Simulated scan of single mutants.
Amino acid sequence: MPPAKKRTRSYDPAKIRAAVLAQFGNVRAAVATLTPEQLALPTRLGDWTVRDLVAHLGMTLRAVSRLVGLPEPAQQDGTLLDWPFAIAAEAPDIAAYAKELAERHPDPDAYLAATEERFTADLDAHPGTRLLATSAGALPLADYVVTRTVELVVHTDDLNAAVSGLDIRYDRQALAACTRLLADALAAKAPGGSTEVRVPPYAVVQCVAGPRHTRGTPPNVVETDPLTWIRLATGRVTWQQALQDAAVSASGERADLSAYLPLMT
């Protein structure tokens, strides 16, 4: 796990809650339109079908319900920036559980509706300071809800890619939080100040060891759009692919981020 000693960005809990519910609502509205044939389509996530992916999108919120049901840790020992690097270890169990949920809940719309209702009740019942025993260590509930924006935005993109003609909208606050958390994770994984990574309009971070830039135009600059950045950070697109497609611009000898990507898969 890379060092995560940098100051963690703060997020407004009320705005994050609204963003998570808005993005989940966008997903719910789209899923309600899917036919059985579309639910059976393959996705870019190994052997997952669209139905499995929908089940996993529900797991995004069900995870909160599961964690608040566990004993509260005595003290916080993780940070928000630890989470992207810890999630990979859970991937096999997550995949298996998604398939189990998909089989157990043949009506995806009802499943997502019940999941949202329970999630809202859990947030109403617990303060943001309530600690949760996550794979990244003990984190406050408010911080863990920020990680839900990453899961929802990333898998909304997976769902859009899987179903031709589907165009689920991205809530602006959810997209912003997802972009910022993954940009900050890059800065934690590759600490330094020689390269500036710009993801307008949401994030700018300094990273990569080397001479620190202080004034004027940085000598090493990477710039891309939010969805391309998220795809790079999660391994949906490779660095070389993004360069070839002109989806990312990189200038300077320390502007090659391929050694640090993806951040999470």
Score class of each variant (00 low, 15 high):
K6R: 15
R9T: 07
Y11Q: 00
P13F: 09
L21G: 00
Q23G: 04
N26Q: 12
A32L: 05
Q38T: 01
R44C: 06
G46E: 03
L53V: 03
M59K: 06
A63S: 13
L67P: 09
V68D: 08
P71I: 11
A74W: 04
Q75M: 10
Q75P: 00
D77A: 10
G78V: 04
T79Q: 04
P84A: 07
P84Y: 01
A86S: 13
I87T: 13
A91K: 15
E100H: 11
A102P: 00
D107Q: 10
P108N: 05
P108E: 05
A110I: 00
T115D: 04
F119G: 02
D122H: 00
H126Q: 04
T129E: 15
A136G: 07
A138Y: 13
Y144L: 12
V146G: 08
E151M: 12
N160I: 10
G165R: 10
D167L: 08
I168M: 04
Y170V: 03
L182W: 01
A183V: 07
D184T: 03
L186R: 00
P191S: 06
G193I: 09
R198A: 09
V199L: 04
P200T: 09
P201T: 11
A203K: 07
H213S: 14
R215T: 14
T217L: 11
E223C: 09
L227R: 01
T228I: 02
A233N: 02
V237E: 02
L243P: 10
R254A: 14
P262S: 13
L263S: 12
T265M: 09
